[in-house]
């Protein structure tokens, strides 16, 4: 299993993603530059990491999505390759149209940086197969624009097709206004594309993969990908 982590100008979770995949998930992991025009053969999963690509100019992810490497990322996704967008990576995926909807300014207008709880809504996707349906994870968020928005038809479709991967919840798994940190529609924290090979999520699983820092709940996302890739082989 090889992960490829894209480094945009302003990415700041790229090394966390590298550490999580290389050391915690014990996989091969390589860094990819945003000006690259191809992805090395044998790369199973592209990670678009968190950060502030291009300074969040214009809109979060709007400039990154026209980076040279994004053409190769789109081709990789179209071939069925895995793509994981975390935080700014999720924003890049919605801006590029690889995932539906958009990420609006947090309803509180505040940048929120804290641990929250998410509930796994899907336990069969390549990103969540090591989780139980309804399993609660404690994962950090750190964003100013994480308020997931899509029209009602899109939200209904996402739910009906099992494409909501994670919802914000409280420690007991309740999804309500109080457990919704940023105003996201239906408490949505992460969604899948129709084919199930692309996941975008605002919480940062790569920041909680090591018991030495007190929380390894996020590791399951990377282990799920490794399991999914093994099945393909």
């Amino acid at each position: 299993m090889r992960f490829g982590i894209v480094v945009f100008p302003g990415s700041n979770c790229d090394h966390d993603a590298f550490y999580a995949t290389r050391h915690n998930a014990e996989s091969e992991s390589i860094m990819l530059w945003h000006k690259d025009t191809s992805i090395p053969k044998g790369t199973d999963c592209i990670i678009l990491p968190g950060g502030f690509s291009y300074g969040d100019y214009l809109r979060c992810g709007a400039i990154a999505r026209v980076s040279p490497i994004m053409t190769a990322v789109t081709q990789h996704a179209k071939r069925g390759g895995y793509v994981l967008g975390i935080c700014n990576g999720f924003q890049i995926l919605t801006e590029s149209g690889l995932l539906p909807g958009a990420l609006l300014r947090n309803s509180s207008l505040n940048f929120i940086c804290k641990d929250i709880y998410v509930r796994a809504e899907n336990s069969v996707s390549p990103f969540t197969n090591r989780l139980e349906q309804g399993q609660i994870l404690r994962v950090p968020i750190a964003h100013g624009e994480g308020n997931y928005f899509a029209d009602e038809d899109t939200l209904n479709m996402l739910e009906q097709q099992g494409r909501v991967a994670f919802k914000y919840c409280d420690v007991n798994g309740n999804t309500n206004l109080d457990s919704n940190p940023n105003g996201s529609a239906r408490n949505i924290a992460g969604i899948l594309n129709e084919q199930g090979n692309i996941l975008g999520m605002m919480p940062h699983p790569e920041r909680c993969c090591d018991v030495q820092i007190g929380n390894a709940d996020g590791l399951a996302v990377f282990q799920s990908l490794i399991s999914a890739a093994e099945v393909l082989i």
Binding site: L58, R59, A62, V66, T94, E95, G101, A102, L104, F149, A150
Partner: peptide
């Protein structure tokens, strides 16, 4: 294409 995001 770029200047606005028609979704929002």
């Amino acid at each position: 294409t770029i200047i606005s995001n028609p979704i929002m």
